[in-house]
Design a protein around this nucleic acid. Structure first.
Lengths: 194, 194
DNA sequence: CGTAACAGAATGAACGTTCATTCGGAGAAA
DNA sequence: TTTCTCCGAATGAACGTTCATTCTGTTACG
């Protein structure tokens, strides 16, 4: 059975990968379906064997890579460790993901909260945010984090990460071990209690 | 002379303001020119009396509001003050701008580094970034800021600000004096030397 | 009366999507 | 093995729509 399906699945992979690349670079409305087809090496009509519509396609890309990033962060997460270790894990995993899958990271940032995302995509997104808030609230109660609205600390951490990845992307700085360590220290000092 | 031009200038204002709103909400490619015309209360063809093309229009919007935000930040800037006072001024001015002109802020974030921005738009953008780096380098040398690549500290500050404004926009947190003060303290602890 | 501004219909290109057709490989028949 | 049949996968031209832009007639003002 597997062998029979393989070719089809390969094509779907090609389409998804081409869509990721183009959507990340030029956005949803800036990318034409025939353009995706050309990059995937299939005919325009073939796309509609695998996806109901352009919107369904962008949602498939979104959900897949959001799940991948979440998995990368959650893998080996030190749930029982200290807040500092958790932050280290989180930041280094996100940076690692952004280097390994730069297009996926850019895509997710670009399509964050877009109106053409469907309920399932939004659900995935909401669950991630809820997790982050939970982490902050738990560590705030135990007095290791600064007394501030959880949303503020989340914004500092996530905003900082995105800001740094973008700065590296636009060649305004480099994203090496030295920068990462400095960034992590800065973020930790931003959120910990003094 | 002024009176003669007034009617025309009013129309141009209407078009620019409608364009800002729609571009901020739905992006460049997601907004149709006739849609802008309708919201501005003019006919589609009239737009082309004021702008050469849709691209020229988005660049006009970009340059205008980038300049406005820069002016808001630079107005009364405490050049001779201490780094902490400068950061306070910067953050509170950016938040103030984002509350007074939420669409402008959203527009600028959404169209940051977009491929349809022209040389002049990019020039404006580059000059802002250069200023930020200059500030960091100056204060780093005088040992009040953490020893880290300037781009990293800029990313933490700007990324954090954008992250917080977005969180407020998406109702994940509130943007009141308390949040702002907590945020400012956090950012200051992130970039100062300890 | 002449000129500039404007509206809105017109235009052609490009879009997302569809569909009649072709292709290619897996079995059945010889 | 060779040939024939068949069926789902794939195609790409074609469709209706919508886009950015242009054109043309009308209006209003000096």
């Amino acid at each position: 059975m597997a062998a029979v399906v393989t070719r089809s699945e390969d094509k779907k992979e090609c389409i998804l990968s081409a869509a990721l690349e183009l959507f990340a670079e030029k956005g949803f409305h800036g990318t034409a379906v025939p353009e995706i087809a050309a990059k995937a090496g299939v005919a325009a009509g073939t796309i509609y064997r695998y996806f109901d519509s352009k919107e369904a396609m962008v949602n498939a890309v979104y959900q897949r890579h959001k799940a991948l990033m979440l998995a990368a962060v959650l893998d080996d997460f030190p749930y029982e460790g200290e807040a500092r270790a958790q932050i280290h894990h989180f930041i280094s995993r996100v940076f690692s993901f952004s280097k390994k899958h730069p297009l996926a990271f850019q895509f997710l940032e670009l399509h964050h909260h877009a109106p053409y995302l469907d309920d399932k995509s939004r659900e995935v997104e909401a669950s991630v945010i809820e997790m982050a808030n939970g982490f902050v609230e738990q560590n705030e109660r135990s007095k290791v984090l600064r007394k501030a609205p959880p949303g503020v600390l989340c914004a500092v951490v996530w905003g900082g990460v995105v800001g740094l990845v973008r700065a590296a992307w636009e060649k305004r700085t480099e994203l090496g071990p030295k920068s990462e360590a400095a960034f992590e220290d800065a973020i930790w000092d931003a959120i910990r209690i003094h």
